[in-house]
Amino acid sequence: MKVRLIDLYVAFLKIGGLTFGGGYAMLPMLQREVIDKHGWATIEEVLDIYAICQCTPGIIAVNTATMIGYRKRGIVGAIVATLGEITPSVVIITILASVLTRVQDFAVIQRAFGGIRIAVCALIVQSVLTLSKKSITNTGTVLLFLASVALTLIAGLSPIAVVVLAIVAGLIIGKVKERRAA
């Protein structure tokens, strides 16, 4: 049976609206809506889609929505599922941002955000450490990590240039390894 576009939209609207954070945080909601409720994919398929979506540019949650939407209803499905996924963010954040702009000059709000920014720094430290464990595993990756910090912080290179350089470096390292193995 053909999946209805409205069902795709509503399913991803719920996933977007009930997931805090990104990436793996959406997995429980994804499982409930996509696997248990609608049977649009099996858990293995979802994990495969996840693997693909982590090595493509963009937000993982959006990539997953696009992929499942595409598999069910082609290009239109991909767009509809993506719009569902981003609708809650756009609505909630727009409201909050407009409220915040109105109250941001109050001293109490400025003080609160002074403290919040410190908490955000601490949360970034945690994210960096968690990500490091999976990605910085040997001398080569340590050097790549240090190089990217130095290039952005000291040399002032744009993150786009650093990402492009990383892709080139990764391909060259891969070639060198192949030659050595051969």
Partner: peptide
């Protein structure tokens, strides 16, 4: 190469 570099960018 991308994974450690992305961690570096977030560190920045």
């Amino acid at each position: 190469a991308l994974r450690p570099v992305v961690v570096g960018l977030i560190t920045f």
